[in-house]
């Protein structure tokens, strides 16, 4: 299952649009973020897992793949947390 949610990134003074794409499919349960994320973005997995639980929503037992497009631009910071969260809910 595929979903797309839009977010925004920042480099220097310039913002750029980021599409948070998500694919939830059957397979080994895992949660991956790709699209040149830095450590902070990678760690958002743990924050989102916990945040979902606190909203009494269990994390999907499936292979969850998140892509931050454009995939060749570095993403940094915790800005995308909310968009990834929304993408999972879709």
């Amino acid at each position: 299952m595929f979903a797309k949610v839009s977010s925004l990134g920042l480099f220097g003074l310039n913002a750029f649009p980021v599409d948070v794409e998500i694919d939830i499919s059957r397979g080994n349960p895992q949660f991956e973020v790709v699209g040149l994320p830095d450590t902070v973005v990678k760690e958002s997995r743990e924050r989102i897992r916990a945040a979902l639980r606190s909203c009494s929503i269990s994390f999907p037992v499936a292979s969850v793949m998140v892509n931050l497009a454009p995939a060749d631009t570095k993403k940094s910071g915790s800005v995308h947390d909310m968009a990834i969260f929304m993408a999972i809910l879709r």
Partner: peptide, 14 residues
């Protein structure tokens, strides 16, 4: 979610 964009950090308690 057309035309909506999301920015923000989520903490462990939501």
């Amino acid at each position: 979610l057309e035309g909506c964009t999301f920015i923000g950090e989520i903490s462990l308690n939501g």
